[in-house]
């Protein structure tokens, strides 16, 4: 049996969502409408108040009980601050297929934690949920997310042309996918790098 730490890396840990404190922090990130879109798909997209974020998180925690979604707070190893969240959804158990979202609120935190968050998230999806494949949707203009997934050797699987409207023009939506054999290679490389 392999008992590698499931919920923590050197600098970052996956933690439970704090329904009292976290909504306010996440609401503060939603002036970035890319974050707001991840939380609520109804239109028009707009920044959300803490009580609205709370409602979304309540729903996710409920779905977790039905094993429809898994959501983790991302917190630094040595503090209770919230830097982001990682959520697995669209779980299709019969096919071993799922989607995930990785949201980190501040640019500095993205630089510090995104790689570790992805590594912990993928480990949970593949090793704990036994998924055969995962995918993530990225807006064409989200350069930092694209470079994160590309450097982790995700495969650019789908380009939905003109699927998003923002800043007065259409943008493509990209789907990046990773299969279990590809995860094994990635995991080995991450192990060597650490």
């Amino acid at each position: 049996m392999n008992y590698r730490p499931l919920f923590e890396d050197r600098d970052l840990r996956l933690a439970s969502i704090d329904l009292e404190k976290d909504p306010k922090v996440i609401a503060g990130w939603t002036s970035d409408l890319t974050v707001a879109r991840r939380l609520r798909s109804d239109e028009p997209v707009r920044p959300l108040a803490a009580h609205e974020v709370r409602k979304v998180l309540d729903e996710w925690v409920k779905e977790r009980e039905k094993h429809d979604t898994y959501v983790f707070a991302l917190r630094p190893r040595e503090s209770d601050d919230l830097v982001g969240y990682y959520r697995i959804d669209s779980l299709t158990w019969v096919h071993g297929s799922a989607s995930f979202e990785l949201v980190i609120g501040k640019a500095d935190d993205w630089a510090a934690y995104a790689t570790a968050a992805l590594e912990l998230g993928l480990q949970f999806a593949f090793d704990e949920l036994n998924m055969f494949r995962v995918k993530v949707r990225v807006e064409e203009f989200d350069a930092r997310a694209r470079s994160l997934y590309e450097s982790a050797n995700f495969y650019l699987e789908v380009r939905q042309r003109q699927a998003l409207y923002e800043q007065g023009r259409y943008w493509d939506v990209l789907h990046y996918g990773m299969l279990r054999p590809e995860y094994s290679v990635y995991h080995q490389q991450m192990g060597v790098a650490a």
């Binding site: 299709t92 019969v94 096919h95 071993g96 297929s97 055969f132 494949r133 995918k135 495969y155 650019l156 699987e157 789908v158 380009r159 939905q160 042309r161 003109q162 699927a163 789907h175 996918g177 299969l179």
Partner: peptide, 23 residues
Amino acid sequence: EGRSRQAMLRDGKRWDVIYMGLL
């Protein structure tokens, strides 16, 4: 517009889910 590779398991075989778009 692309394929979710091997996203379905049917009869022991994996199949792609194909995405198509019409503008």
